[in-house]
Amino acid sequence: MKIIAVCGVGIGTSAILKVNAERALDRLGLSADVDASDLAGIAAAAADAQVILTSSELADAVRAAVGRSFAEIVEVSNYFDVEEISTKLETSLG
């Protein structure tokens, strides 16, 4: 399973999201590769991904960039809230 954390420039915020998504997966007892990407590279990065994690602010841009893809887009409000990320990932993967 592959998850992409995406932000505008592919550093900083997507890295934090990646780290906390990995914590959320641990908590859920799931294993997946989590990669960080910028918006420009998201279509390629998400080609074989199941889930894209991003901010609600970027969700529309992500949707437009990936076009028709099987990856589900999950919007995270608080990047430091592992509980929020766990709940949303569980819903999305379950």
């Binding site: 505008g8 915020t13 901010s55």
Partner: peptide, 16 residues
């Protein structure tokens, strides 16, 4: 360009 997504948690902006 991308909006206020840098506000990654309540009260906190990660400018970069």
């Amino acid at each position: 360009e991308f909006g206020a997504y840098v506000v990654i948690a309540p009260g906190l902006a990660l400018a970069h």
